[in-house]
């Protein structure tokens, strides 16, 4: 049984995630994959506090009796179609064009991933840049999934992507942040938001990621694959908020030696 989110856990300032012409209160984006059923998915999404949720575009499964859409309140959530499983720019562009023909997406936001290798699921930068150029030209708000490479991030910004989404570690690996320094360099290199996509394993990973100063996190497996996805969704909700607040609050510098918290004046013995 999940704990009810505390409504007091809100900040008293405007701190919105801006992606192109859109803005969101939540800095956590969640996927819809790997849940045991749609009811668990629906509850986990709600507890995560996310406003954007990713979905794939796939051939209709004639055996599937439940309609996934009926578990998603589209007045509450922004659906983000992805190009998961595409290995070429051509396939990724076709998938996005096909998603547009569905006529169910209320924004032009798309998550672009062009995979280069099935084992690591690392992106193919060349194909990714090619696809991004075409889709930006066609008017989509392109959110590209990238490796933690500042050069590719800059190229995508120059093409017209309003956000870049570098991985923390491979998709579904749960390894956490393998290279925090590169994420920091990406954040300094581009002037668009940076959303860390993939690799987060648990709440401390999410908090640490946000403490680096990135603008948001996209995750799926860390929640859906947890023993208790509902409470993990809530944990991630808190962790992203905690990490963001800690970043904005400015942490104390690290020192080798102690610095007493209690004043010495007035000491008796």
């Amino acid at each position: 049984m999940a704990i009810i989110p505390n409504n007091h856990l809100t900040t008293n300032f405007e701190d919105k995630l801006k992606i192109g012409k859109y803005s969101f209160k939540s800095r956590l984006i969640v996927g819809t994959g790997k849940y045991p059923d749609f009811v668990t998915m629906q509850k986990a999404i709600e507890l995560s506090g996310a406003e954007i949720i990713t979905v794939a575009i796939r051939r209709i499964d004639f055996e599937q009796k439940e309609n996934m859409l009926s578990f998603i309140d589209q007045d509450k959530y922004t659906l983000l179609p992805n190009t998961a499983g595409c290995f070429t720019a051509e396939d990724a562009v076709s998938t996005i064009r096909l998603s547009r023909e569905l006529g169910i997406f209320k924004t032009d936001l798309v998550k672009l991933e062009v995979i280069g290798d099935p084992k690591t699921l690392y992106p193919d930068n060349e194909e990714l840049l090619k696809a991004a150029k075409i889709l930006v030209k066609e008017g989509f708000t392109v959110m590209p999934y990238i490796i933690d490479d500042p050069i590719v991030a800059k190229k995508l910004e120059d093409i017209g992507c309003p956000v870049v989404m570098p991985l923390a570690s491979p998709i579904g690996s749960g390894l956490g942040i393998r290279n925090p320094y590169n994420l920091k360099i990406i954040k300094e290199t581009v002037s668009i938001p940076v959303i860390v996509d993939a690799g987060v394993g648990t709440a401390s990973d999410a908090a640490k990621t946000m403490e680096l100063g990135v603008d948001g996190i996209l995750m799926n497996t860390a929640i859906a694959g947890a023993t208790d996805p509902l409470n993990m969704a809530l944990a991630m909700n808190y962790a992203v908020k905690a990490g963001r607040l800690a970043f904005l609050s400015g942490r104390i510098p690290m020192k080798l030696y102690a610095s007493a918290s209690t004043q010495m004046e007035g000491i008796v013995f």
Partner: peptide, 10 residues
């Protein structure tokens, strides 16, 4: 003919 719709994904 390919008929597609949304599916779970991350």
């Amino acid at each position: 003919l390919d008929l597609v719709t949304i599916a779970p994904g991350g």
